[in-house]
Amino acid sequence: MRIGLILGCALAGLALLAALVSSFWTPHDVTRLDIAQKLMPPSGVHWFGTDQLGRDILSMAMLGAQTSLAVALVAVAVGMAAGVPLGLLAAARRGGWVDEIVMRGNDLIFAFPSLVIAILMTAVLGPSATNAMIAIGIFNIPVFARVTRGAALPIWVLDYIRAARVAGKGAVLISVQHVLPNIASLLIVQATIQFSLAILAEAGLSYVGLGAQPPTPSWGRMLAEAQTMVSLAPHAAIIPGLCIVLTVLGLNLLGDGLRDRLDPRLRVLR
């Protein structure tokens, strides 16, 4: 299982590196169109070939990593910032009306087809990378609220929580000092999972034209543009798809590896 963690770190690290490097350097300038060079197969000049407008696919993919990671990062941050406190509160007041409202609200959001609502929201707010972040982020809130509550509930019945109550500590202090540190590893694991799901969602939204808008490159739109010429130039469709698969795979492996390392139950077994 250690191989998974290393591979995950490598793949996720590669995506991050590509995103960072692309912010100041790409092999070719993607704003310059060169129709004469369109749909070229991979070569020494263009390692991953060119697209229908003659742009270098490697450079596009690197910039696409930037878009994907940024959208996913903000979406996960939105979900955690709202979801974790809600989940902690619900667990601290388990069985009370706060818990009831948080959980029923969660159920309600879960009942909505997330992709349809994300499409509706980007239509309401106008298609852009920022609005994709918000739309995906909102659906992360109930996920984190539920995971946080679920992880916090078994902590609340432990004796050290009772000891803290006997020491006069209130629900907020106990949540911050005892509960949160003890569920942090679980939340980190969930964050990597949600991060990878957000990348898939962003790709889907930009594939249907509701994500990042031109000229900002994104993997989803690269796929959409390559689709009509998939038989002529399969590389233009395969490369961005592989970018998505490898990044998501890396993040999932990373999450699994972290879970194995951080889960104290598994650590005892070893």
Binding site: L158, D159, Y160, R162, A163, A164, V166, A167, G168, K169, H178, P181, N182, P264
Partner: peptide, 29 residues
Amino acid sequence: RMQVVFQDPFGSFDPRWRVDRLLAEPFHL
């Protein structure tokens, strides 16, 4: 004026705290 000792020697302490911080927790009062 009152304190408690529980049954389970494993669940009675936050595994992420050091002993000095654990023992000093009642000073909160």
